[in-house]
Computed example of a mutant assay.
Amino acid sequence: MNRADVAQPVLMPMGRPRAGRCSVLVHAAGGGVGAYTGVGFALRRSGPVFALRGYGLAPGEEPDRSVTAMADRYWSLLTELPEPPGLLFGWSLGGVLAWELAARLAGEGRRPRVVMVDSPAARIDRDPAAARRWRERVRASLAADDSGVPADRVAATADAHLDAVVSYRAEVRHDCPALLMPCADEDNDAHLAAWREVATDLTVRPLPGDHFTAFDGERLPLLLDHLKNFLTSTEERHA
C-alpha cells in the first residue's frame, strides 16, 4: 500500500476485472494488503479480485476495535459489489474477518469458500503473557513498514486491530468450505480445536515456518499449491 492507495476506497480492485469467481482478500492486523500480491495475481486468472485495506489508514478514519465492528463495516462494502464474493481470503485477523463475513453470506443462502492463513480462533488474551508476545511480534513486524502511510497512523490502526484479534473467539458456525493453513512453528493447538468446533467443512494444510514467513518467497509456492488444490477439490460442491 502506498500513499495513493489510502486515498482510494477501502475495497479496492486488484487489476482489471474479468469474468469469473469474485475473490476478496481481507487485510491482516495493521491494515495493509501488500502481502497478498502473489495470491491476488494467482486468483485474478479465475475472476475479479478485490482487496480490503484496513479502515483507519487514511486521514480522518478512526479504526474499529472489534471484529464485529469491522465485519459490520466491511459487510456494507461487500453488498455493493456487482456480485457476491465466492472466495474470502485472509491472513491472521483477515482470516477471522473472512470467516465472519462468510457467515453473513451463508445467512443469505450463499456458500463462499473461506481461506484462513494462521488465523486465531481461541481467545489469546486469556493468557496475558501470550497476548503481550503477540502484540510485540506484530508491532515489530510493522516497524519496517515502507508503505508511505504515516507511522503513527499505522501504529494506531495496528493497536485497534490487536485489541480485536486477541479478544476474538470463533463462535459462529456455518458450513462454507474452509481451508485453514496454520504455521507449523506457532502454538496452534487451541486455535485448531476452536476452528473445528465451528467449521463443519474444514480442510487443514499446515505451512512450514512461523506466522510472519507465510508469504515469503520460499513458502508462497506451497501456500498457492494448497489454495489451488482446495479450490479444485471444492469446485463441484461449491457450484
Rank of each mutant, 00 (worst) to 15 (best):
A19I: 04
R45Q: 14
I124W: 02
A69H: 11
L227F: 11
A69M: 06
R110M: 06
R133Y: 12
A160R: 01
R196N: 09
T37D: 12
R111A: 15
A155N: 10
L222I: 12
Y168W: 08
W75C: 05
Y168E: 07
P120S: 11
A184T: 06
H191A: 03
V138W: 00
L43E: 01
G54Q: 02
G107Y: 03
V117H: 02
M181A: 10
G34P: 09
W99Y: 08
L220N: 08
G94S: 05
P112G: 02
M181F: 05
G90C: 06
L224Q: 07
E197D: 14
R3G: 15
A131Y: 04
P182R: 02
A29H: 01
E197Q: 11
N2Q: 09
E235N: 15
S46P: 10
P13D: 11
R169D: 13
G95W: 00
P208E: 08
R169L: 13
L52V: 07
G86F: 02
C176T: 01
R139V: 12
A160G: 09
G107K: 02
D185V: 03
L207F: 10
F89E: 06
A158L: 01
L142H: 05
D5H: 12
R3M: 13
R53D: 05
P206R: 06
D175Y: 13
M14S: 02
A122Q: 02
S167R: 06
D146P: 15
A143M: 04
A184Q: 08
L25W: 05
L222R: 09
S92N: 07
V39D: 11
A156T: 07
M1S: 11
R153I: 04
E108M: 12
R104K: 03
F50L: 05
E235T: 10
R104F: 02
R21G: 15
R237N: 15
V10H: 04
L43T: 03
A143L: 05
R132H: 14
R237Y: 13
A214I: 04
A144Y: 12
S119H: 01
Y74E: 03
R219D: 12
D187M: 03
R16K: 14
N229F: 07
K228M: 15
G95R: 00
A130F: 07
H161D: 15
V39W: 09
P17D: 12
L87A: 08
D185K: 01
R135D: 15
L81M: 10
L43I: 08
R45N: 13
A194D: 07
R237Q: 14
G54C: 08
R173M: 11
H238L: 11
A140V: 06
E136P: 10
G148F: 05
G31R: 00
L142D: 11
D189T: 08
P63S: 13
A28Q: 04
H238P: 14
A106G: 00
P208D: 10
T213E: 08
V115S: 06
M14I: 15
R139P: 15
E100L: 04
S46K: 04
P13Y: 14
R73K: 09
S167K: 02
A122M: 02
C176N: 01
A129C: 09
A158R: 00
E235I: 03
N2E: 09
A214E: 04
W75Y: 06
